[in-house]
Amino acid sequence: MVHIRDLALPDFPLLLAPMEDVSDPPFRAVCKANGADLMYTEFISSEGLIRDAAKSRKKLDVFDYERPIGIQLFGSDVETMGECARISTLAGPDLIDINYGCPVKQVACRGAGAALLRDIPKMVQMTSAVVKATHLPVTVKTRLGWDENTLNVEEVAERLQDIGIEALTVHGRTRVQMYKGDADWRLIAKIKENPRIKIPIFGNGDIDSPEKAVEYKNRYGVDGVMIGRASIGYPWIFREIKHFVATGEKLAPPTVEERVAMCRMHFEKSIEWKGERSGILEMRRHYAQYFRGLEGAKQWRMRLVDTYSVEEIYAILAEISAAEPVLVG
């Protein structure tokens, strides 16, 4: 088993990446149903939480069926991050995670997320403040460095472990790369091979198939993998990887009936958590992925995004299931 303090995860756990405007409770519910072992909230702005912003507060919602679940925080001010760790602890997660990896301009240019890779002393100070502010395990997600000239993640791993983090996830790209090019896991492997490193090391970046998950497990020796974009509209990625790891065999892709059932579950959770109107609107971004590759998928999606009626959405989903469209791509 893999342990984050007293939190016991299975061998080679599969983590759901925190994704802004994606990994909310409804999305997490379908990923958990398909085998995600550890999940995180969308990242939460420390400044927004201190201001008591409604959107930031809403992201603190965690549910027992999601466990184990971590709340992820980002920010640029050391004292504020410590205070937010205290606030987040009261929400009852299983751990607190710090985002030192987000590359988007709105975050990094405000001195948060991946920007801290250019100021390791401040990163250490901020991490220490969070560790001291909570009784929960603290973990970190980061990148290889700011750019190719500052690949400092090995130093980051050692220094953050020394001040108390209990697991580290590394995305195999720099901030400058954003999400372009191939993720490079070689430095992740070097961290794992470092005899000083005792905490679990999880790899992230480009895991989009069972074969790649097993290949990277064997090649780079990571304790587990974090999956992000490949799970959007395809939560079955978790069960498929688990089956392949256990048996060496690939599962058949989900049937049309399974796709519809999972989409319906996601929709129901969305309505339940966000209310009818917001749940309908925010679910629209997921339909294309759930029915990707099915014959007639475009017409189904257009009808689903064109209605504000819960009953009509259920009726359209029933039509898709009854039609049993074939997989064409």
Rank of each mutant, 00 (worst) to 15 (best):
L136W: 03
L136H: 05
P137E: 00
V138P: 14
T139G: 05
T139E: 05
T139N: 05
V140R: 04
D147K: 03
N149D: 10
L151G: 09
L151A: 12
N152G: 07
V153Q: 09
E154M: 10
E155C: 11
A157P: 08
A157T: 09
E158N: 10
R159D: 09
L160D: 07
Q161I: 03
I163S: 06
I165Y: 13
E166W: 01
A167W: 11
L168W: 06
T169Y: 01
T169W: 02
G172T: 06
T174G: 02
V176C: 04
Y179I: 07
D182H: 08
W185Y: 12
I188E: 08
I191N: 08
K192G: 06
P195R: 14
R196N: 13
I197G: 07
K198W: 06
P200Q: 01
P200V: 01
P200A: 00
F202M: 03
F202D: 02
N204E: 01
N204R: 01
D206G: 04
D206L: 05
D208K: 15
P210T: 06
K212R: 14
K212P: 12
E215H: 10
Y216K: 11
K217W: 06
N218W: 08
N218V: 11
Y220Q: 10
G221P: 00
D223S: 09
D223P: 13
V225E: 12
V225W: 14
M226R: 08
R229P: 02
S231Q: 04
S231F: 02
I232P: 03
G233T: 05
W236E: 07
I237E: 07
I237R: 14
I241G: 09
K242T: 04
H243L: 08
F244T: 04
V245A: 15
A246M: 11
A246N: 15
A246H: 13
A246F: 06
G248N: 14
L251T: 14
A252C: 01
A252L: 08
P253W: 15
T255M: 09
E257L: 05
E258W: 04
V260Y: 02
A261Y: 00
A261P: 00
M262A: 12
M262I: 15
M262L: 13
